[in-house]
Design a protein around this nucleic acid. Structure first.
Length: 588
RNA sequence: UGGGGUGUCGCCAAGUUGGUAAGGCACGGGGUUUUGAUCCCCGCAUGCGUAGGUUCGAGUCCUGCCACCCCAGCCA
């Protein structure tokens, strides 16, 4: 372990970052008494995507990293303050995704709604202390009073309403006496603040809805800015990490906590069992980092939801989606996703990560772990002239070229299939596969020579007749070099399969760029190519849903977890192999 | 003269008291190879948005300028 290495941690290869520096400083100064408490706070209004994975890896990763030297842990808290948009199904999916990624949250799952009673009591306290008031402006009026980016806002005529009246109105708001939008609870801060978030922000609104966790208990629901900081405080979080767009909210985050009676927050935290062993109570602090952007994809819940709703994809878990569940179904592994999150780093500048980084991560993992197999995508029949029709020979091919993963059986006989693209009657320069009169190696088998081409009436090549050099199994032919190696499957034993070849969902590097108009204009019409009649080697008969393989010379594929059956197997292409030949030929 | 941020290689990104630009991806060139894969070598910023200043010395300090991002939901 290179202890003198300042930039790269030998544990995971992740570069250091400003958040780790911050925590190191806080640990050194004793600010939080040696504790590191983070939290991952998703709103259950959609599926998690790779951008959330960055946050998950950050928050849970920090807990893992500092677990040895500090009392470090990461909570999972569903930020469920808006019953209009949230659903239990999303809660279940989010939980499953985090577990799949291999992270463990501390203790029970938390919900902001667990704290509704405290939040309500604190609101009463703010009102009593003159820090909040019930406003009765309509939402439209409130917008007008708020001012603009360059002009200050105006104070609401209800701003100086008595504490008693606000108290009464707020209680009646919760009692259900008013309709949505009739009143709101606002923090009394500064309508002239250059930071719009500080212009008496609404902290409670009326929402007469059934909540997925609390049912019909509440008629008022807290706003994010109010609920989030307090929830962090109640969980005794030390470092509250969020994305850059919340930077302007930090003053409000601090204002709320600073204007609450600290003993009451402390007591609530203790009551919840989150402040038992720490030597003293310390308020959390917010730190922001840049959210993830990846080219050729879109990472906004709103846009992903739109693709699902408009059926441009089959669902949140469509293998083309950058959601955790989509990537999982595509064949991505937790290892690859976590490695990706490590290598992209953590910064504060807006950036767009090359999707090649993601592809590199999964290739790296699958190259090391996936069993090899042969699959012919576009079959071309090959009859071996000097092999008897009843010839039966079992070949035992290694599952992996470098690691000892055992072998797989592939029968060899008179008739086989190769891929149409591995034969060219008029080959381009540099082509080293099968050509008329030339030889090529059948992977794991013999060298064959093409003697005859059979075509149909349209001139299409439909069959090749070849001769086998019987003295080339496991050894090179004498006196000559055979450069090409192509994959094949036995005609009799091969299994027919459907292969779904996925490509990037968008054709433009930045679908979010307004110059393209709506992002859906950038959709790649060829993002899914369904190939039927593909032939896979018989060893794949035992493949289970989700199993990954490298189809040699093609790419990494996995058994589709939804549509594949033993009778009709379906494979998804996770990612192609790197292809310098294809690139040289002008392919992507 | 609204506020808050960010600018280091094509893309990410280290760079912690100023001491003479890590690493990864991509790309290019070689080698090994029964996967045109993997793997292994080599190459890839006299330069850190820009113009000045301080200093023996600046990506790191100071000043001005420029570009880009975020904020006017009773969304998060």
């Amino acid at each position: 372990m290179a202890t003198d290495d300042k930039t790269v941690d030998s544990n995971d290869g992740a570069p250091s970052n400003f958040i780790r520096h911050l925590i190191d400083q806080d640990l050194a100064s004793g600010k939080h008494d040696g504790r590191v408490q983070t939290r991952f706070p998703p709103e259950p209004n959609g599926f998690l995507h790779i951008g959330h994975a960055k946050s998950i890896c950050l928050n849970f990763g920090l807990a893992e990293r500092y677990g040895a030297q500090a009392a470090a842990a990461c909570n999972l808290r569903f930020d469920d303050t808006n019953p209009a948009k949230e659903e239990q199904t999303f809660i279940d999916a989010i939980q499953a995704d985090i577990e799949w990624l291999g992270f463990e949250w501390a203790g029970d799952i938390r919900y902001t709604s667990d704290y509704f009673v405290y939040l309500y009591e604190f609101a009463l306290q703010l009102i009593k202390n003159g820090k909040a008031y019930v406003d009765s402006l309509t939402p439209e009026e409130a917008r007008e009073y708020r001012g603009t980016l360059t002009e200050p806002g105006k104070e609401s005529p209800y701003r100086n309403r008595s504490v008693e009246e606000s108290l009464d109105l707020f209680k009646r708001m919760q009692a259900g006496e008013f309709a949505d939008g009739e009143h709101s609870l606002r923090a009394r801060i500064d309508m002239a603040s250059p930071n719009i978030n500080m212009r008496d922000p609404v902290i409670y609104r009326i929402r007469k809805l059934v909540h997925h966790q609390t049912g019909d208990t509440w008629n008022v629901y807290p706003m994010y800015d109010y609920a989030h900081c307090i929830s962090d405080a109640l969980e005794h979080v030390t470092h509250s990490l969020c994305t850059l767009e919340f930077e302007d909210h930090r003053p409000l985050y601090n204002w709320i906590l600073d204007n609450l009676e600290i003993e009451s927050v402390e007591n609530a935290c203790r009551e919840l069992g989150n402040f038992d062993d720490a030597p003293r109570y310390v308020l959390p602090g917010q730190t922001e980092f840049a959210r993830l952007n990846i080219n050729y994809t879109v990472l906004s819940k709103r846009k992903l939801k739109e693709l699902v709703d408009l059926q441009h994809v089959s669902g949140w878990d469509d293998p083309r989606m950058p959601t955790i569940s989509g990537l999982r179904r595509r064949g991505y592994t937790p290892t690859a996703i976590r490695h990706f999150c490590d290598i992209i780093g953590m910064g504060r500048s807006d950036s767009i990560v090359d999707v090649g980084m993601l592809e590199h991560s999964i290739r790296e993992d699958l190259d090391a772990t996936a069993s090899r197999a042969m699959c012919v995508l576009r079959p071309l029949k090959v009859t071996l002239l000097n092999v008897d029709a009843d010839h039966e020979q079992m070949l035992h091919l290694p599952k992996h070229p470098k690691q000892d993963m055992g072998t797989r059986d592939v029968p060899f006989g008179k008739t086989i299939y190769i891929d149409q693209t591995d034969f060219e009657e008029e080959p381009p320069k540099g082509f080293k596969r099968l050509m008329p009169g030339t030889e090529v190696r059948l992977r794991g088998s013999y060298v064959i020579r093409c003697d005859e081409i059979i075509k149909d009436s349209d001139g299409n090549v439909v069959e090749l007749k070849c001769t086998v050099d019987l003295d080339t199994l496991g050894k090179n032919p004498e006196g000559r070099k055979v450069k090409g190696v192509i994959h094949w499957v036995p005609a009799e034993a091969a299994i027919e399969a459907e292969v779904r070849v996925y490509d990037r969902l968008f054709n433009e590097a930045n679908p979010n760029d307004k110059t393209h108009g709506d992002f859906k204009n950038c959709l790649n019409p060829d993002s899914l190519q369904v190939l039927t009649g593909c032939l896979v080697e018989p060893s794949l008969a035992s493949a289970k849903a989700g199993d990954s393989f490298q189809f040699e010379r093609e790419g990494y594929y996995c058994v589709d977890s939804k549509d594949s059956t033993p009778e009709k197997p379906v494979f998804n292409r996770t990612v192609s192999l790197r292809d310098s030949w294809g690139k040289q030929q002008g392919g992507r």
